[in-house]
Design a protein around this nucleic acid. Sequence first.
DNA 1: TCTCGGGTGTGACGAGAGTCACAACCGGTC
DNA 2: GACCGGTTGTGACTCTCGTCACACCCGAGA
Lengths: 233, 233
Amino acid sequence: MASDPAPSGCGSSFDLASYALFADLREEQRCQLLDQHRVLRFMAGRPLLHEQDDGQGLFLFRQGIAKVRSIDAEGQEVVLSLLGPGDLCGEMAILQGAPRSADVVCLTDCELLLLRAAPFQALLHQEPRLALALARLEARRLQNLNRRFVRRESSAAARLLQVLEDLATRTAAEAPPTAPIPPLPQRELAALSGLARETASRTLVRLRRQGLVEQMPGGRLRLVIREQRGGHG
Amino acid sequence: MASDPAPSGCGSSFDLASYALFADLREEQRCQLLDQHRVLRFMAGRPLLHEQDDGQGLFLFRQGIAKVRSIDAEGQEVVLSLLGPGDLCGEMAILQGAPRSADVVCLTDCELLLLRAAPFQALLHQEPRLALALARLEARRLQNLNRRFVRRESSAAARLLQVLEDLATRTAAEAPPTAPIPPLPQRELAALSGLARETASRTLVRLRRQGLVEQMPGGRLRLVIREQRGGHG
DNA sequence: TCTCGGGTGTGACGAGAGTCACAACCGGTC
DNA sequence: GACCGGTTGTGACTCTCGTCACACCCGAGA
């Protein structure tokens, strides 16, 4: 992990306003939040939050994709969601001093902004816009997970397609589902969709034969959008 | 559905303070929220939210258990969570004028308080404590769903036990997992745990034989707590 | 009493995905 | 070139759960 210490001052080029959470704030308040922020870089495969156990902070994704995961009773990894540019994490720990139940691991090289918890917490208590925006953020996450929960019942193909679409749309803010997907080993794709590696392999082969997934130069995958993706093939 | 119109005044005996969401407010603010509230009663099997499509409100559970559910692509019901005394719902629609993706159906006869959206929304924008409490509420829901997501992978027995425990703890605020469970048909238990009715039946038989579940007079079930409920039997 | 209907237990079967095993491939390094 | 480790494809088998089918129970009502 690399870290650039940053000046406390504002006028920084970091565009907090592009994060929905901070869009409603006054410029001066955003500056407040940037106080003693740092820029962090993690290599693919590195965990984000482990090292920050006590002195928590807010992590804003600028580049790269990460997975939020948990370990079940049998020691199996369960992936709860994906994070990409424009997303943030660490707010749950700040909201409720709760012990962290999930950890975050980078899937690709990541660059992110770490805001200190203190000014964020202070602003939360005095500015309803921020608290409200946070409530909205949590609500949206809940809805996303709900949708995922509903799809969870479905076939291996549907689950894998869902993961591929998620990956594509996280490569950048506003990325289309047909954006090329960063090259990840099948083992990883399988973990993301909750399948065995072999099942993921077989399913990928079938999806390629059906023309739903395209192999791009460099081994990257790309979704091909078709109507009727019911996924009961 | 029965409905008691209520006076706008305060001094009502409804104890909003017992809901975590309102615990931090001043008494006067809670009164504000009670303006034109109503008491609603629904029979088991009745949907809550359908009829309130535009004029939304906040539903506070006082008695009874309900399920939050959604319908998947194949028309199958997927249960997202359970609500009981002390819980509330309808806040997502208020937070983001979003079209509702899930509906709420009573499992037993329910009694609840309906607060009007307007004063709640107004207070949200001016009182950070309320907005913050709402953010915490959403965060806690997210964590609950995360936990459920993790367990979803597991066996039929584990899933059913989970549902039974959820039902027991929702019969009242602070109810222990060993509280008696309201008598629901197997069809309903199966839907709650995402199993086929037959599988639920077979699994229940096995759990009874293992002594993990007890049949009480009147057909009600009760969980028996044992250490080591790994659920790989 | 018989019958009817809903809820419940259980048997037989099939489909889907996990597991084990192994071969082919690919990119490094020596 | 040979070697090695990690990745990918595939075949065979197993296990779990869904599905279909049916028998049983029990309470309600004619």
